[in-house]
Design a protein around this nucleic acid. Structure first.
Length: 747
DNA sequence: GTAAGCTTAAGCTTATGGCCACCAC
DNA sequence: TAAGCTTAAGCTTAC
């Protein structure tokens, strides 16, 4: 089927022809036949890289040309940026009726800050599922104008953490805009028809790929495929390294999946020694540049380790890396400088980062309850599916590794020849229902218990199960919400001011309840006490307590015993252990706000740079929430802590002591530079002005100083103060230059 | 004969990922 | 639960 033959505006057809797309892939053609362009709902359960995005684009562009608006829901922020960048290329496409302009695209995720209402002026809006939920909770007006919804990776409905959010969000959207077209994109799962049925969507089910995929198992010196074998030269005594070297010899790149961060690091190191021998001069030089970038962007030992690997043409990738390092690794791999990435499952789903060959070094993962467990078929398929870059590789290969013949046979049966599992709604748990019941009531989707039941009947959970089974849980949730003053009334369900606030802050009602309780009880509010309060909530993630740490943390608790709201009795062992883990998490945050450098923090708590930022990120949100709650219940508190929580929120954001807050609030000044200025007597914005450009340049470097003065709106003063020193022409053009690079960086 | 280098066995340790708010320029 | 790491012992190789 030709693009030209489709019922689309000329501008759209020209856009695709110009980018070299003339013919549709078979699954895309099937989607067209099933009414994609006529506005039918559609579920496409097809492999990655088989053209899902194009499907979505065609539907969105058609809808916009008829005056509509599209919402594209993704599971990851990184994916949101990727789609946003892609859709921005439509700025040359002008299809909006009555308006002669290119398409506008907006992005909304936790780290891209744009006003929600302003966002509505775009034709396509990309958002994470949680952000979509939050926009609904805040009753964003343009939500009702959406005519096309694309749900990427809809099989995440199966995820225990995040599935319920997606499910409830979709249910709300369908209630809000009953005539909306829904395009759901999914990996191949067992019961795709069931999801399609729920969404009232036509199903496109296909295994077709633009690049063929061969799935094999390595055993006894060969990669064994169905019907063929490939001999691997045993040049080292490490099987995975041999398979990797074989790939490089053929001119391909490799993605290696490991089961833990530590393993991913050690494989990258181990492989580096051998990969290094295969590099040519040109690649070496390019890698050296990457090494420099890595060192520049890192403050910890991990950066050195990564740099060492990259110098050899290998890299590791996991959530402990900071975002700059992740990007350098991903881009370095895409541009074929880095030959191998050894990664945790971070790279399995999401980012588009294919390779000639995928090696799955471990198909087992640790589960605290059951020990090492084989991963689901779906996870395997996602990893294997990364093999083969469309249009670049002649084929893709995935390799599992077996130690015995029996294991090999088992792997063929259980993974290669198996279909992915069915997906199951996880909405039935109390944890999931508690938060979503509250938001459903707050937003008026249900005002009575019967109304709530009716809403639940429309969810995927109810599509798969009888709802009478969860009514007990629903009632428990309602009781919890009433007990904690978030709901009122028996017949009619009325949200209280507290309930509304908890819902819009997007915190678990249980977190809200803990915070309110703690705020009321706290007598001697200190940094560690307040930090512990947020670390206790289910929204905070916990650090793992190692056995030899109990004593040390216990000592700290004893020394500050009057600062904690409540300390469980030591006799309740489990509970006390939990408490110590919460305190440990609070201690990490305390080090962060006390300006401890990252390196000692990562070492002390055995985490990566990326983790520290992730902890701070969550903590900032929770501290903000607690601050807002404190404002609401102020009359009921014995001591007013609003000022303290507000200050702590800022300190967590910047990782800085109170005295630095003024300096650090200036854009471009982080905690390190602020400290340098402060220790040299420059403590406020005014004293920056007094000190002058020259003095500040000495401390933080001329470029940053210039940026800083520009930021505090002082460039005019400088010019008049030092007319002889700086040519105003050069100065202002230089600053313009700085300005643009700086805002580029911010993006 | 000795030291270095390698292999093997036993014992110990440790084990994925990542989303969400609001403010204000 | 099991894989990797560390340590120690046992063996081979090189001088």
């Amino acid at each position: 089927m030709k693009i030209e033959s489709l019922d689309l505006p000329d501008d759209v057809i020209r856009f695709y022809l110009d980018s070299g797309i003339e013919e549709l892939y078979p699954p895309q053609a099937e989607a067209i036949e099933k009414g994609l362009i006529e506005g039918n709902n559609l579920l496409a359960a097809i492999p990655t890289a088989s053209g899902k995005t194009l499907l979505a684009e065609l539907a969105m562009l058609k809808a916009i040309s008829k005056g509509g608006k599209a919402l594209y829901i993704v599971p990851l922020r990184a994916l949101a940026s990727e789609k946003f960048d892609r859709f921005r290329s439509f700025s040359s496409v002008s299809v909006k009726p009555g308006e002669n302009r290119g398409l506008r695209v907006g992005i909304s995720t936790g780290d891209f800050e744009s006003r929600d209402e302003w966002l509505g002026s775009n034709d396509i809006i990309v958002a994470t599922s949680e952000k979509t939920d939050s926009l609904l909770r805040n009753e964003t007006s343009w939500m009702q104008e959406i005519t096309t919804i694309v749900v990427d990776e809809v099989h995440l409905l199966d995820s225990a953490n995040r599935g319920p959010t997606l499910e409830v969000t979709l249910t709300k959207l369908m209630k809000l805009n009953p005539n909306c077209q829904i395009i759901a994109l999914s990996a191949t799962v067992g019961n795709a028809y069931e999801v399609a049925d729920w969404l009232k969507a036509k199903l496109v089910l296909s295994e077709w790929r633009p690049t063929s995929l061969r799935e094999g198992v390595y055993y006894g010196g060969n990669i064994n495929f169905h019907g063929s074998q490939k001999l691997i030269d045993p040049r080292t005594n490490d099987d995975a390294v041999n398979i990797l070297l074989d790939t490089l010899e053929e001119g391909g790149q490799c993605l290696v999946f490991e089961s833990s961060r530590k393993n991913s690091v050690s494989f990258a190191k181990r492989a580096g020694a051998k990969v290094s021998e295969t590099l040519d001069k040109l690649t070496r030089n390019a890698l050296d540049e990457l090494v420099e970038q890595i060192i520049e962007n890192g403050e910890t030992e991990a950066a050195n380790e990564l740099a060492k690997c990259v110098r050899n043409g290998t890299a590791f990738h996991h959530a402990g890396l900071n975002s700059a390092h992740r990007r350098i690794v991903e881009d370095g791999f895409r541009s074929n400088k880095i030959k191998v990435i050894s990664s945790t499952p971070t790279l399995a789903a999401g980012l588009n980062l294919p390779a000639r060959r995928v090696i799955i070094r471990s198909y087992r993962r640790y589960d605290p309850n059951y020990g090492m467990q084989p991963i689901p078929v779906l996870d395997y398929k996602q990893m294997a599916g990364r093999a083969g870059r469309p249009h670049l590789d002649p084929y893709g290969e995935s390799v599992l590794i077996a130690k015995s013949y029996d294991e090999m046979a088992g792997l063929f049966d259980n993974y290669i020849d198996s279909d992915a599992e069915d997906i199951w709604s996880k909405l039935g748990s109390e944890n999931a229902l508690r938060t979503h019941i509250l938001s459903t009531i707050v937003n008026g989707f249900a005002t009575t218990r019967d109304g709530l039941l009716e809403f639940i009947e429309a969810t995927f959970f109810a599509h798969q199960n009888d709802t009478w089974g969860i009514m007990d849980v629903v009632d428990e949730c309602l009781d919890f919400l009433r007990d904690n003053k978030m709901l009122e009334g028996d017949e009619a369900l009325l949200p209280t001011a507290l309930g509304r606030l908890v819902s819009t802050l997007y915190i678990d009602p249980l977190s809200g309840a803990y915070m309110v309780d703690g705020l009321k009880k706290i007598k001697n509010p200190t940094t560690i006490g307040l930090l512990h309060l947020i670390c206790k909530t289910p929204d905070m993630r916990q650090l793992y307590l190692r056995s030899n740490e109990s004593e040390i943390i216990n000592d700290i608790v004893m020394a500050h015993s009057d600062e904690f709201v409540e300390i469980p009795p030591r006799s309740k062992e489990m509970e006390y252990e939990w408490f110590l883990a919460e305190v440990k998490t609070a201690l990490l945050l305390q080090d962060w706000v006390d300006e401890k450098p990252l390196d000692p923090i990562t070492e002390k708590f055995n985490v990566g740079e990326g983790d520290v930022h992730a902890f701070a990120d969550i903590a900032e949100w929770l501290m903000h929430s607690m601050s807002r709650l404190a404002g609401l219940i102020a009359p009921e508190m014995s001591t007013d802590v609003s000022n303290q929580t507000a200050l702590l929120e800022k300190r967590i954001h910047y990782g800085a002591s109170p005295e630095l807050i003024e300096l650090v609030s200036i854009r471009g000044i982080g905690r390190v530079r602020a400290r340098k200025l402060y220790d040299n007597g420059i403590k406020t914005t005014d004293s920056i002005k007094e000190a002058g450009l020259e003095r500040v340049s000495e401390l933080i470097g001329p470029k940053t100083a210039l940026k800083l003065f520009n930021e505090i709106g002082l460039h005019l003063d400088i010019r008049s103060e030092e007319p002889g020193k700086v040519n105003s022409q050069t100065m202002s053009s230089l600053m313009e230059n700085e300005q643009s690079t700086f805002s580029d960086f911010e993006k």
